[in-house]
Every structure is written in structure tokens, then in C-alpha cells.
Design a protein around this nucleic acid. Structure first.
Lengths: 241, 241
DNA sequence: ACAAAAGTGTTCCCTCTACACCCATGC
DNA sequence: GCATGGGTGTAGAGGGAACACTTTTGT
């Protein structure tokens, strides 16, 4: 129970990140569709020993929440190659963490491109977002919130850059979008939609053709690697000048 | 300066709300376009005495952040008729509030329909979002974030219900959308877009006609008064079954 | 009758979808 | 040549923007 005699507002501020990645199903072959996974860490101590939780920790005195989560991901799980970080929400139920102290969490979405495979401590592992193990505290809700945010932003921003390697083929990109969104995306239309917005540029090179032949695929890169809202108006566009 | 000797994570958690309303320009006449305004409170004490700040306060021990901001708005500024409340972001720069204590703020967007005019304490007043007075701390950034969130969500959700009275004419609704979005919205298309999504239903009644004549306007209501995402996919719609 | 305000019908245009068809490579 | 995967052309459809036109009231 929370001690009601404490002065108002005093609480422990923690930061947590749902780090998502579309991980290839078969390692070392780019084949397969890939699965959207989240980085979790198995708790050794009570409370919730043995359950899986999100990486993070306490806010340091001289950092804001985003600096804090970046520092902690780098320190604890050696994830330094985040291509995108954004706040999700505050999770603040008074009883969300048992114990004497009140703990308020600022949750983040973090994205890692599919081609990086950071070295992880023994107690850390990737888990499919759609088949989560037993999770600690309210961390399952945070993971689902992260997944939903990613899905939404893939549809009206250039956020695909954060899932993809520096260079990629359209069909590889199609696999990333399909895995993240949870439904098949057409390569044809994916290329046209992204090209029309000026988000893709060809590198000029082509990918080596596969073992069963086929035309070699052209390589592309994203023209920007910071997030950009490309479709701000679903309806009610402002009148054109 | 923040004292670096304090234990990690301990901080004061505060909640703040940018309460927005499209306020009619001429009171008591529904005429005029209305202006998007925010509720601010003039600080009497240092720090930042004389500057305008957002209502809010410290998180209580037995409430989550949303319950806290609703309680504080009701207590301090007697705003009880919020039609929508949602988290914006955490503001956590170590130096955002001068003093011995570290203060981390969870900022909210709150919406009040245009027809309610709550009684306000003497030190509280509405200010146009596009002509803010001197604001305290980082509160100006919070207000702008709230405005941007409102504008975005008006375009892909039914959030208009939170700005409008229970019953309204299309042209009154047009004024609300125009004031909030910052550009003229066509009444014709507004009605069709909202109707197509099933968000509007006619009450059957009509509004009294104005002093200068004209056909009496039909009254409508929103069919739902909780927020609903109506256009989740700007592009990359899932394939139809 | 005329002005004013509300509401409807119609056209245009843009862009996403779907699917057929062409291209480049390995065997 | 033929299978395989990559890329392009093109028709179709849906929906929002714009604007002309009709409807209903007051004077």
C-alpha cells in the first residue's frame, strides 16, 4: 500500500522503454517475413521475480527523461543503435509497483533497425509482441501501446526508416511493414506511396539475386532519417492558396 | 541548480493541464467565429511571479495522473465540465523549475465545450492561444503542444464533440472547427465528412432564425461523446476481406 | 419581391488499390 | 527456354474540394 502520510507529489520517477524490432525469422538470411519483437529482461529479484520486464530505471538528477532512457538502454542492454525514440505515456497507478515507494513511469517507444543484433546480457531476450511471456507490473500494457503507436505512425509518417537498414530492397521493406502492421502490404503500392512523398531514393546499386534466380532488386535508401509527418490531414485539409 | 547528492529518481511529480476552449468572440451571441483560448492562472509568488501558468499541482498519493488533474481542475478553477482529457507528454528538463526540488510534470490536454463559461477565481483567465501573455516555466511549449494535438485529432477522430455543445447547427460547428484548426472549413464538406462516418445525427429540431432572416438551421448532435479514431490509416489500408 | 442563411447536387480531381503485363537473371 | 522474383502500366473506385443551385425564412 502507498503510505498516505508522505508529502504530496514525492515519488520515484522511472523511465521504461519498449524497444521494438522486426527480427528476421531465419537469422542470416534476409528471407522470411520477420516478426515484431520487443526486448525484455527477466527479473531475478522480487517483486515479480521470474517475470519479464522492460529495460529502464530511475531518472538521474541531471538528465531529462529521454536522455535517461537512452543512457540506460546503452548501459544495461547495450542498445546504442536506436533509430527512433519517442514518449508514449505516463503510467502512474498508485499500486502499479508494490513496495513502500510510489513509482511513476514514463514509457517510451524505441526502434532498432532489423539488421542490428546487439549483444545482450544473459537475462535479456527478444520476444514476439503477439506472444508475450509473463510480464511484470503494467509492462504488457506498455508494450501494446508501443505496438499501436508504431502501427499508427507507419501510416502517416516516414517512420519506416527506423525499422529498415541503411539500404534495402522494396520487397525487404514490404516484409518489414507487413510484420509491423500485421497484414500483407503490396510491394507495388508501398513503393509508389513512399516515392510519391519523396521518401525513397534509389542508390543505383542492386541486390544480389537469390539462389532460385529472378531479376536482381534495386536498392533504395530513405531520404531522411528523422521522423517526419507526411500525412497530417486525414480529412479537412486546409484550403489551397 | 539541482542537487546531485539526492538519490536517483526522487522528484516531485506534478500534473498540468492546457484546458482549451473555442470561446465565442461576442458573448451571448453565437455569432462570430470564436477564438481558441487556454485557461491560465497568474502567479502571485516567486518563482516567476506575475507570469501566467497552467493550472495543476502535485500528484496526490492515492491517485493516478489523470485523476489528479481532474481533481485539481475541479478544485482550483472549478472546471468540472471537461469533455475530453488526454496526456500530452512529460516535461522533465532538470532546470525547468528553479528551486531545490526537482519537478517533473505530466502535461494534459483538456477540452471544454464552447457553451460552458465556468466561474473563475480572480487570478484566472482565458487567453488566446495565438497571443499568449508572458508564461511561466515551460508552459508555453505545453500550450502549443496541446493546440497541435487538438488540430491533429480533429482531422482523424470525432474529437469535435468535445468542443461543441450537446446540440448545434452545422454552421456553428464550422465556426468551432475553423477556430481550432486556424483556417476556414467549408460547412458543406464538414457535414458530409462527419455524416459519412456516422458521427452526426439530426435532432429533428431547428434553431431559431437570426434577426436578418434566413432559413432556420437544423440541429445536430454527435452520436458519440467519447473519443473515437475514425481514420486510422492515412495510407496502407489493410487489404479488404 | 428580395435578401439572407441553410442545405443539396454535381463535377472535378487526386490518390490509393488491384491486377495484368513486361523485365532481368539463374539454370 | 523457362522458372522465378522484380518492376511498370493502366484501369477502377472512393472520397474530399469546390461551386452552382435550390430551399426556407424575415422584411
Amino acid at each position: 500500500m502507498v503510505d498516505s502520510n508522505k508529502p504530496d507529489g514525492l515519488a520515484v520517477s522511472e523511465v521504461l522503454a519498449a524497444v521494438l524490432q522486426v527480427r528476421p525469422t531465419s537469422p542470416h538470411t534476409g528471407a522470411g517475413e520477420g516478426v515484431l519483437q520487443v526486448l525484455l529482461w527477466k527479473r531475478a529479484l522480487e517483486p515479480h521475480a521470474g517475470r519479464w520486464s522492460l529495460p529502464g530505471g530511475r531518472l538521474g538528477p541531471n538528465e531529462d527523461v529521454e536522455a535517461s532512457i537512452r543512457r540506460q538502454l546503452a548501459e544495461k542492454v547495450d542498445v546504442r543503435q536506436l533509430t527512433h525514440v519517442e514518449q508514449l505515456a505516463v503510467f502512474s497507478r498508485p499500486d502499479r509497483v508494490p513496495g513502500d515507494e510510489r513509482v511513476v513511469a514514463t514509457a517510451f517507444l524505441g526502434l532498432v533497425p532489423c539488421n542490428v543484433d546487439p549483444e545482450l546480457p544473459a537475462d535479456t531476450a527478444w520476444h514476439p509482441v503477439d506472444a508475450l511471456p509473463d510480464t511484470a507490473f503494467d509492462h504488457q500494457a506498455i508494450v501494446l501501446r508501443a505496438r499501436d503507436r508504431l502501427r499508427a505512425k507507419l501510416s502517416y509518417t516516414n517512420l519506416g526508416f527506423a525499422l529498415a537498414p541503411a539500404e534495402f530492397t522494396i520487397s525487404a521493406l514490404r516484409g518489414l511493414y507487413s510484420a509491423a502492421l500485421g497484414y500483407k502490404v503490396s510491394a507495388t503500392n508501398l513503393q509508389r506511396v513512399l516515392s510519391r512523398r519523396g521518401l525513397l531514393e534509389p542508390t543505383g546499386a542492386t541486390a544480389p539475386t537469390g539462389p532460385s534466380g529472378g531479376r536482381p532488386a534495386a536498392l533504395f535508401r530513405f531520404s531522411r532519417s528523422d521522423m517526419l509527418v507526411t500525412d497530417p490531414f486525414a480529412v479537412f485539409k486546409p484550403p489551397r492558396a
